[in-house]
Nucleic acid binder design. Structure first.
Lengths: 143, 143
DNA sequence: TACAATTAAATTGTAAACAATTTAATTGTA
DNA sequence: TACAATTAAATTGTTTACAATTTAATTGTA
C-alpha cells in the first residue's frame, strides 16, 4: 500500500513469534508455580532429567542459553536441593550438573504439566506438526 | 517409549518457539544497533509510527506488554528524543505517546531493517505464510 | 453529593537474557 | 619447559518481562 508497509507490525513474522512465545511461557506459570519452577528452570530440568551429569556448556548448547543465564539459574536450583554443581576433577574448568533424589522426585510431579498445557493449546494435530517442523528448520539455521 | 516421554525437550512445541523467538531477536541486534534501538523498542516504534498518539494501555494491548515493561522503555525512548510522553488533559490517568520529528526521521533509517532480516531467514514462502497463520491462531486464543 | 469501585500508570521486586569482560584451568607450540 | 592461545564458568552491566502493589484520577451509585 504505502512506502512504510515493510515496517508494519502485521507484516512481521518475528512479532507473532515473540508474542506467542511470551504468552505460552505465561500460560505455564500456574502449572509450574505449584512445583516451584519457572519456565526456564523447567526446560533446564527437562534436559537434566534426560541427561544427568551435563556440564554448563553442553546444557547451554541444548537450551540455546549461555553461562550468564545458566549460572545464576543453576545456583537457584542448587539452593532448592534439586541439582548439585561440582567442578570436574579431570578438567576443573567444567562444572558438572547432577540431579539429586529430590530432583528426580520433582520429575514425578512435573509429569502432569505437559498434559495440562496440551489442553490449553487449541491446534489441529497437523498444525502442531507443521509448526514444529518449521520452527526446527529455523532453529537449525542458527547453528 | 518410556513413561517420561512427555517431559522430553524434543516432544515440546513450546521449546522451539521459545528458542527461535530468542534467536530471531538476537539476529536483529546487528541491524538495530546502528539505529540505537533494542528489539522491543523497535516493535514499539513500529506501532507508534503507524499510530501516533496512543496511550500506554492501548500500546500494551497491541504489543502484549504491560506498563511495567512499557513505562521504563518509553522513558528511554523519550530520553533519546524519539517520543514524548504527556498526561492527557481530558483524562489525566492516560499518558499519550507521540513520535517526534526525530522519531519520524528514524523511521527512514529503520526501513532497511526488514529487508536485511528477510535475507537471513531461509523459509519457503508457503512455510512463512503457514507459520504466520498458525502463530496468529495461537495469539488470538490468548485474548 | 459522598464514597466505593474501577481504571491507567507507575513502582517494586524477582528472574531472565545476553554482550562483554574476567578468572582460572588447560592445551598447543616455539 | 615456558608461555601464548584457547576454553569453561563466572561476573558485570543493561534491558526485558511480569506479578503484585501503589498512586492518582475518574466513574458509578447509594
Amino acid at each position: 500500500m504505502n512506502e512504510y508497509d515493510a515496517l508494519k507490525l502485521k507484516n512481521q513474522l518475528c512479532f507473532p513469534l515473540y508474542a506467542v512465545s511470551k504468552e505460552i511461557t505465561r500460560m505455564y506459570k500456574p502449572f509450574l508455580d505449584p512445583i516451584n519452577l519457572t519456565y526456564t528452570q523447567y526446560i533446564t530440568m527437562m534436559v537434566l532429567w534426560e541427561n544427568d551429569g551435563l556440564n554448563v556448556k553442553t546444557l547451554g548448547e541444548k537450551l540455546y542459553l549461555d553461562s550468564g543465564t545458566l549460572t545464576p539459574l543453576l545456583k537457584k536450583l542448587e539452593q532448592q536441593g534439586i541439582v548439585t554443581r561440582t567442578r570436574h576433577k579431570e578438567n576443573e574448568r567444567n562444572v558438572t550438573i547432577n540431579v539429586t533424589p529430590k530432583g528426580y522426585a520433582l520429575r514425578e510431579d512435573a509429569l502432569k504439566v505437559p498434559e495440562q498445557i496440551v489442553k490449553c493449546l487449541h491446534l489441529e494435530p497437523e498444525e502442531g506438526a507443521m509448526l514444529y517442523k518449521i520452527l526446527y528448520k529455523l532453529l537449525d539455521q542458527s547453528k
